[in-house]
Design a protein around this nucleic acid. Structure first.
Length: 552
DNA sequence: GCCGTTTTCGGCCCGACTGTTTTCAGTCG
């Protein structure tokens, strides 16, 4: 049974309920533990059986006991006690925009309002009129919040979708002559698998003009808030976008601050305090003297640290690694030598090949990998030979090397396939379930990787938990797992990549079906602390065997 | 409730914006 998501949800509920009780620091402690658990690359039960629950960041004695209680009994008595004190709808009230724990507690305590629907009724009948602190404007906002709650849910979006939206806005702002620096910050810059809202950061010679242009972009559906340095809007697909305009001398500090993550920043600030420094979005100060802020490197240097890549700023050991001079040398897009998972449309193989050759040449790829499956050609070996001859005729300079892979169902792959001299590598197609016991891929021959893991998205397990059996299997069998920018919710996410890398496994980085998002896939690999050593397609394949006369 | 290259106790990021306010509380990120 998967338990990480279930435990995290319960800890978050405890945090919400403690919020209502106006507890000061406990809610954040429970939330931090919940975030930590969602970011694990392994099931909680594995941590418990090793006696390592305490080693999860943010989990101390009290939360550890509650996790153990849940894993043993399926209940957390503390949560049940808290739940009994408040109707469930009151927590829902806190979920409305602009309505926090203080207001929810007052509405319940003073008016008996215990759900968004009841709040709507109370507003309708004038029940809030005259209540201290509730003026006409605030009542109107609450009314809007109650009605808006039915319209859209603040769902997180896949990285690639959010990236496309953010890039469009960034390009529109970059055209303005008063805009100097402009960066996408937030979880998008960290390349998180899913994105809640989009953060943009700019410097400008005319900040009000920049804010004005931003608020008036054609895709803006609603301006939520607009001040002299900060503006929040909702753009067309229903995504919230924040723009902040800062002074040039603070750009690095602001970029660091608004890139997060929250846990990374809290730890960074604690370190600053211990060093007698103060750090905020304007800069790093020692007393009255500014000692950093122009760029991010300066900010980290002021704290005695090397610059830390955004993708790993999650407080998952990166600050300790940086302090010890042991940051990993993360894989970079420029180190990818070629891609390995291009399918050729039946009947148009040679045309597609020409396209791949030109694309590969433009990107400076050392090789391009086309994949044939038994279902896509009656005689894959013959087709491979024909494709190699066609490749040799292409007038593309410089022409990358053509590699041809054979895709097989993982169940059907036999040792004999590995010796098929027509192919440079094997792609194993996995089912949605875990690898069956005793499943052994060919052990010899060309490189092998499991093409895009399509994990069964059902249930409450995190992607990393669902991938756990595959991670173990892949590292034991020396088979790489593919990483694509489109797969993180039902395939290998960055937590899974990190778990794989930690046991010495390998990945193949692929751009996904439309071939346009290799950079995002590399970002995912970087989030998983992968270096070029862990990436199969950051290396060149062995040269063609001499007995196979291959025109390349 | 968690945490510690000066701490096992005393901290916990901190500033912008909004609405309702004569000086601030609540929310958000």
């Amino acid at each position: 049974m998967s338990s990480n998501t279930e435990v995290a949800e319960r800890l978050q509920r405890i945090a919400d309920l403690l919020d209502l009780k106006a507890e000061k620091f406990k809610p954040e402690a429970y939330r931090r533990a919940a975030r930590s658990i969602l970011g694990l690359g392994e099931d909680l039960t594995a941590f418990r059986s090793r006696g390592q629950l305490d080693e999860i960041p943010g989990v101390g004695e009290a939360i550890r006991k509650k996790i153990e209680e849940y894993l043993t009994t399926g209940r957390i008595e503390y949560l049940e006690r808290l739940t009994a004190e408040v109707p469930p709808g009151v927590v829902e009230l806190m979920g409305l925009p602009g309505l926090g724990p203080k207001t929810a507690a007052r509405l319940f305590g003073e008016l008996g309002v215990s759900s968004p629907a009841e709040l709507g009724d109370a507003i309708g009948t004038g029940g809030l009129n005259g209540l201290a602190g509730f003026g006409p404007r605030k009542i109107a906002l609450l009314k809007e919040a109650v009605e808006g709650a039915r319209a859209v849910s603040p769902a997180r979006r896949p990285l690639r979708e959010a990236w496309t939206i953010a890039e469009r806005i960034r390009r529109a702002l970059a055209e303005r002559t008063e805009v100097r620096e402009l960066e996408i910050a937030g979880s998008l810059r960290r390349r998180r698998e899913t994105i809640g809202d989009i953060d943009l950061l700019a410097t400008s010679t005319d900040p009000p003009a920049t804010i004005g242009v931003f608020a008036a972009l054609p895709e803006v559906r609603k301006v939520v808030m607009k001040g002299p340095t900060k503006c929040t809007v909702v753009v067309e697909p229903g995504v919230q976008v924040d723009l902040r305009v800062v002074a040039p001398g603070s750009f690095g500090a602001a970029l660091q601050y608004f890139t997060g993550s929250k846990d990374h920043n809290i730890k960074l600030r604690t370190r600053a305090r211990d060093l007698g420094l103060k750090i905020n979005e304007y800069g790093v100060d020692r007393g009255e003297v500014r000692v950093g802020g122009r760029d991010e490197t300066e900010v980290y240097a002021a704290l005695g640290l090397p610059w830390i890549p955004p993708e790993i700023r999650e407080d998952r050991g990166e600050l300790e690694a940086a302090a010890a001079g042991e940051l990993p040398d993360l894989i970079e897009a420029g180190q990818i030598r070629g891609t390995l998972h291009h399918h050729l449309p039946p009947g148009a193989e040679e045309a597609e090949l020409a396209l791949l050759a030109r694309e590969g040449a433009r990107q400076g790829a050392a090789y391009v990998g086309a994949v044939l499956g038994p279902g896509e050609a009656a005689h894959p070996g013959d087709l491979a030979g024909a494709l190699r001859r066609a490749w040799a005729q292409l007038a593309v300079v410089p022409r990358p090397r053509l590699l041809i892979g054979l895709e097989l169902s993982i169940e059907g792959a036999s040792p004999g396939d590995a010796s098929r001299s027509d192919f440079d590598y094997l792609v194993l197609r996995a089912g949605a379930s875990a690898p069956r016991v005793g499943l052994r891929p060919p052990q010899e021959g060309p490189p092998r990787f499991v093409g895009h893991l399509a994990l069964d998205p059902g249930g409450t397990a995190t992607p990393a938990e669902r991938a756990t059996p595959w991670i173990r299997w892949a590292s034991e069998n020396r088979v790489a797992l593919e990483v694509t920018p489109d797969g993180p919710t039902d395939g290998l996410d960055s937590n899974g990549i990190r778990a794989l890398v930690e046991v010495g496994g390998e990945i193949v980085v692929s751009p996904g079906p439309d071939r346009g998002a290799l950079g995002l896939a590399v970002g995912l690999a970087r989030r998983g602390w992968a270096t070029s050593r862990h990436v199969l397609n950051a290396r060149d394949p062995p040269p063609p065997a001499p007995e196979r006369s291959r025109p390349t």
